[in-house]
Design a protein around this nucleic acid. Structure first.
Length: 192
DNA sequence: TGCAGGATGTGA
DNA sequence: CACATCCTGCAA
């Protein structure tokens, strides 16, 4: 089992998307610390039509081309934000989208930010978790290795058997590709 | 329980 | 114009 970030980030994008399940995403700020276990991810590859970096580098997708571990926060539908971790070598536009967390720390703060007391409604979607964690668009180009947004290894290994692989949510291009991964029977994934 | 509709920046 | 979303309201 991988417990060290530099080894983790050397994985190819699909492997990393699976391996990230069970890791804890954590962010400390003046408001407090919030953390959650990553329970759902999606991979976006260079040759994948759903990928923001499929065509070319732009102002928006530039962080995807950074070294593995680079944070990519993008605005969607003009009002929400989602967070990714860039994968693969520099200048290759691939990333893992973090789609859901199981809240573990700073739950009161998440409840305030989300204006909801229901635990299952705090981080069960890519834009929800960004709001609950207090992730900001200015965190673009930060890295998971060197910032106060970081990841911590799992307490115990997630068995291959407990990982479900499906198609991705909310896309039309590349809709048949099996690039979505989540922890089986976990109540905190998106789309109940 | 399910779906239509609205809010609205970025890039093809 | 489509889009890696979420929330509300209304119908069954």
């Amino acid at each position: 089992m991988i417990t060290d970030i530099s080894t983790l980030l050397q994985l190819d994008t699909l492997s990393l998307s699976k391996e990230l399940l069970g890791w804890t995403l954590t962010l400390s700020s003046e408001e407090g610390t919030t953390s959650g276990i990553i329970v759902e991810t999606e991979a976006y590859l260079q040759d994948d039509p759903a990928c923001h970096a499929y065509r070319k580098k732009s102002t928006r997708n530039a962080p995807m081309f950074g070294q593995a571990g680079t944070i990519y926060v993008y605005q969607i539908y003009g009002m929400h934000y989602c967070v990714n971790i860039a994968c693969n070598q520099e200048n290759i536009g691939e990333a893992v989208l973090i789609r859901a967390l199981e809240p573990t720390q700073g739950i009161e703060l998440m409840q305030e930010r989300r204006n909801s007391l229901i635990l299952k409604n705090l981080c069960s979607g890519p834009a929800k978790l960004v709001q609950a964690m207090g992730i900001h668009k200015d965190m673009n180009f930060w890295t998971i290795q060197q910032s106060n947004l970081s990841i911590l290894p799992p307490q115990s290994n997630i068995a291959e058997n407990d990982i479900v692989t499906t198609t991705r949510i909310g896309i039309t291009q590349g809709a048949d590709l099996p690039y979505r991964f989540y922890i089986k029977n976990n109540p905190f994934i998106s789309r109940r």
